[in-house]
Write a protein that binds this DNA or RNA. Structure first.
Length: 271
DNA sequence: CATACGTCCTGCCAGC
DNA sequence: TGCTGGCAGGACGTAT
């Protein structure tokens, strides 16, 4: 799933559904989905702990236990589903977090690129420093974007997806933002003028905000915390539309590969 | 065989 | 020579 809008959707669902909840026993069915913790240790760390709130940092779901944190990254195919007592286990169940009221938070992941970690306060502070700016925060400005891109020769699409600079933008929204900004994904980052950086800034914020409103994009596997797909697929303008007419000029959308990932763009609109 | 909503690691190369 | 930062490429399970 999981670019910023999808993670944000799950986080809002979880905050509404399980905030104030208390962990019971944690059952680890796939130990390799835990990073840096043993199964019996995570169960011990969580038992009787209250979820103060659920937040997002970059593409991570953060259960704030105060002062430590349980952090889930969904990888490509991970899901975090709130289940009622007695429900059948979903496929590819990796970790079951039981809550004191009988409900469960279930972490499933076909490909198992996702993971669960536990951070104490200092470890979390250190980890957070490795991530770039939140694109929907006030610190992400057109000026900052222009100055930061100025120092890099990588393609702007690759630049956008580097979580050390700006977080939350993945393969779908990188293509979508560049289409909205009318920029060719192959442009070297340092070649953007202040005006173009300004357009990109608006495009990134615009596409991410709209996608959140539509509860994210379900391309293949993404589901929200209640198992429902996102509604933004129908609003995608270029992603997965190779050969289809550009919504602005009818030119066929092209697909190229950059850094091993598909990029979609209109060769006429995007310069 | 190619492709999939993400990260992390390795290894190369340039520059100090 | 040796370290460092930037960057490309591949690995990581599984499914379609």
């Amino acid at each position: 799933m999981p670019e910023l809008p999808e993670v944000e959707t799950v986080v809002r669902d979880l905050d509404r559904l399980v905030r104030g909840g208390v962990f019971g026993e944690t059952e680890v069915l796939r130990p390799d989905m835990l990073e840096g913790v043993e199964p019996d240790r995570i169960s011990l760390l969580l038992r009787d702990r209250r979820i103060e709130r659920v937040t997002r940092r970059a593409k991570n779901i953060v259960f704030e236990l105060v002062p430590d944190r349980l952090v889930v990254n969904l990888g490509m195919t991970g899901r975090l589903l709130v289940g009622q007592p007695g429900e059948a286990d979903p496929p590819y169940l990796g970790v079951r977090f039981r809550l004191a009221d009988g409900r469960e938070i279930r972490f499933t992941d076909v490909r198992r690129f996702g993971n669960v970690r536990h951070f104490d306060q200092p470890a979390w502070t250190a980890r957070e420093r490795q991530w770039g700016l939140e694109p929907l925060s006030p610190s992400f400005t057109p000026e900052w974007l222009h100055q930061s891109t100025a120092g890099s020769r990588v393609a702007i699409k690759t630049w956008l997806m580097d979580q050390r600079r700006v977080v939350g933008v993945g393969n779908i929204y990188a293509s979508e933002a560049l289409f909205r900004a009318r920029l060719d994904p192959r442009r070297p980052a340092h070649s953007l003028s202040p005006t173009e950086a300004g357009r990109l800034h608006g495009a990134v914020q615009g596409v991410l905000s709209e996608a959140i409103q539509f509860r994210g994009t379900t391309f293949l596997d993404y589901r929200d915390a209640e198992g429902n797909p996102g509604g933004f697929v129908a609003r995608l303008r270029v992603y997965d539309r190779a050969g289809a007419p550009c919504l602005a000029c009818d030119t066929p959308i092209e697909r190229i590969v950059q850094g091993g990932r598909s990029s979609f763009f209109c060769p006429r609109c995007q310069r």
